[in-house]
Design a protein around this nucleic acid. Sequence first.
DNA 1: CGCGGGATTGAGCCGAATCAATGCAGGTGG
DNA 2: CCACCTGCATTGATTCGGCTCAATCCCGCG
Lengths: 232, 232
Amino acid sequence: MDTRRLFGRRSIFGSFGPETLCALERIASIREYPAGSTIIPAGDPAGIVGTVLSGIVKLTKILPDGRMQVVGLLFPSDFIGRAFSEAWPFSADAATDVRLCTFDRAEFDKLLMATPELEHQLLVATLDELDAARDWMLLLGCKTAEEKVASFLMFVSKRGDQLGSAHGVPGEFGEFELPISRSDMAAYLGTTVETVSRQITRLKTKNIIRLTNTHHFVVPDMDRLAAAAGIE
Amino acid sequence: MDTRRLFGRRSIFGSFGPETLCALERIASIREYPAGSTIIPAGDPAGIVGTVLSGIVKLTKILPDGRMQVVGLLFPSDFIGRAFSEAWPFSADAATDVRLCTFDRAEFDKLLMATPELEHQLLVATLDELDAARDWMLLLGCKTAEEKVASFLMFVSKRGDQLGSAHGVPGEFGEFELPISRSDMAAYLGTTVETVSRQITRLKTKNIIRLTNTHHFVVPDMDRLAAAAGIE
DNA sequence: CGCGGGATTGAGCCGAATCAATGCAGGTGG
DNA sequence: CCACCTGCATTGATTCGGCTCAATCCCGCG
């Protein structure tokens, strides 16, 4: 198989030579998860790591009383896993049907130690995730419900091109498929389903967005959406 | 000077041999920043990286209209800097008087590329920061004002021992100095000064905490504080 | 002693949560 | 093919936590 195509050029494996890719391929396997299923439960020893091939993975944390927060969304080409830690600090669930390219954790850690360049790429990816997490803290701490929803739409429209041909109109920036549910959106935005719904209709009546159906969004003017999102 | 003592054993440099420490020492210099001053402004090319020697550094993001969120707090021994990026994505300010051990960014990046073990330590530190950021997202998205304040006190009591003898009673877990202002707390918790103040008095009347003065906290029973924080 | 900045307390209001009902589409079985 | 069910989304009515505005307090300091 064409390993490079498989992982995608944007993945942390995108820049490697054939030797490393071969080493990876030998410990790789494909797994599928239906929407709603749990990929890695919270607190797991987490024997696998991998990259997302298709679909969207949500990383969630919950409080003892059941309140839940989505702390990360993984799109195709994103790395999933927590190197150098025995306990997986949150739950990873399939927000849509998901295909993963997985590696055995122990094997991957070994490869990681032996391949500084791989570790470098992982560091770069982790720094990017940290930046994203901090952007999200700004959103959770400061923004109004309308700004939250608008920000989320901007976020997805930017990463939507990574959803493959099935979702997301390629090249078309202002039109995209949002394959996740309203309740997942709410959990990501630190709000409720009802509020998300209300803010979407609000943005509709302001003509900032249009919907052809529940999950297909059209943004005529990205700048107006950005303004509604508080720019950042 | 005793470089290992200088950086601290918990810093990313804690485990290095004399050769690397020497290489570091040659590009290191000490800088001081008074409380309230800006260490690195947002968007800066950020020519320096380093570790915190004493004091507390806050990392902040602001929206165009002035709303502000603290997205990270750095304690002594924490690493400050963003490797492999030309733009510093937020502002770093001194929440108290701060002493830093700084390195020239270009030099440090070079050393980083040449020393896989250093990069490994940086990766581990970054992963920890990411975990912390995600814990904070749970707090910002889900918790009530009282839980937020209680969580913050738990957080500081755990890291307070790193504040040095000046602040923080060494060894004593349930008693600590909180050297930052109420408004910084509020900005970290995604709330307002008034709310923070009210919740502190609430915790006081419940006898979960006691204050000897505005910045000195006593926690008789850490488990009760944890319960008020929503455990996590 | 009076000044000033941070912290606390109070009154009222507003945005978003909650509770509850209705709408809507896809799937199933009669 | 249509009636029904089920899960998700939308809309409405009401409540409430936390924000805003404003006054007062406290303590260190000149």
